[in-house]
């Protein structure tokens, strides 16, 4: 049986207080919201901390274009007011019990994943610790100086595609930043925010002209993290694309924007060939490695498929014959 380590649990009443605590304690403390990813990782000693700073003061309301960072993924998935793709992404995270606990803010900040890293302490010790925790080399790419753990948030790519921003509260005030600016292409330091800053709010421009969709690839219909995913948000002028953003999940250490594909689509009429060409372009920057489920060759091949499906889904065109697990 894997047991939680001993830790102190702190309950600040405001984000400013939480940020203070975090600044004081430094790397000895972590924030916890839903805890669905954090607690299992504590059991596996992937995080070693002395204190958890609870974020249960966070607003859980979903109100117009503002989503409290404490809103659960289940609430987002069933809320009619959020952009469709964002609701889809939230609804495809893990399983119903975990969506009831997991939060909007937590899913944006969720740790990167790697199957050399998401294992028990004993397993990691036996195979040789990796650079992300306790070791000094990357076991996926031993000649590389960096960590290649995979960004595995479903909602982050969608939030970026939709041009969402986050409100970050520090101990000396608040600032607003694009969701895209929250991430760094690094498996270890994957978040670009200050460690003591708390995500308190997600601001999602709600525009009736924008249609969006998120398509997720995973082995099973439930529970699994993405092994490839595509978030698409586009504005149509009649049947011509005005603008389009495509962001991929689980193919890099950060949510990967396929900018070339988005630019390619602007001004184009969406037919089968155009969608396929865009999907080919979108798949180019994806570099899945051998650190997630199934082979990376196949996952790379599947990026095209999920992008195609997400574009079709966004414009409400069916026509896909492939049924992905759980969708």
């Amino acid at each position: 049986m894997l047991r939680l380590p001993r830790f102190r649990y702190l309950r600040p009443k405001t984000a400013r207080e939480a940020a203070h605590m975090a600044r004081d304690l430094g790397p000895k403390a972590m924030f916890v919201a839903g805890g669905t990813d954090l607690y299992p990782k504590l059991k596996r000693r992937q995080f070693e901390i002395e204190a958890l700073i609870g974020l249960d003061f966070l607003d859980r309301r979903i109100d117009g274009d503002t989503i409290g960072a404490g809103a659960t993924l289940a609430d987002i998935a069933s809320h009619a007011g959020v952009p469709r793709g964002y609701g889809q992404a939230a609804g495809l995270v893990s399983s119903p019990p975990l969506r009831n606990a997991g939060t909007a803010g937590g899913n944006l900040c969720v740790d990167t994943r790697c199957n050399y890293y998401d294992m028990t302490y004993e397993w990691r010790k036996a195979i040789g610790f990796c650079i992300k925790k306790d070791g000094d080399i990357c076991l996926v790419a031993p000649s590389s100086p960096r960590c290649w753990a995979v960004s595995s948030s479903d909602t982050a790519p969608m939030a970026i595609a939709l041009g969402a921003t986050v409100v970050l509260a520090g101990d000396d005030g608040e600032r607003e930043a694009p969701v895209a600016a929250l991430y760094r292409d690094d498996g270890i330091d994957y978040l670009a925010k200050q460690p003591h800053e708390v995500v308190t709010e997600i601001r999602m421009p709600v525009d009736a002209r924008t249609s969006s969709a998120y398509v997720k690839l995973r082995r099973r219909g439930s529970i699994d993290f993405p092994i490839a995913g595509a978030a698409v948000a586009l504005e149509l002028d009649g049947d011509v694309v005005d603008s389009c953003r495509i962001v991929l999940s689980a193919v890099a250490s950060h949510p990967l924007e396929a900018a070339a594909a988005g630019e390619f689509l602007a001004g184009k009429r969406l037919d089968r060939d155009v969608i396929q060409a865009a999907a080919d372009l979108a798949a180019k920057p994806a570099k899945p490695l051998d650190n997630a489920d199934l082979t990376h060759f196949w996952r790379k091949r599947m990026v095209r498929v999920v992008v195609e499906q997400a574009i079709q889904e966004a414009i409400g065109a069916g026509g896909s014959t492939v049924k992905l697990a759980g969708q």
Binding site: S95, R219, R220, G221, I223, D224, A325
Partner: peptide, 8 residues
């Protein structure tokens, strides 16, 4: 990570 089917 060791996959066995879910209800879905």
């Amino acid at each position: 990570e060791y996959k066995s089917p879910t209800f879905l």
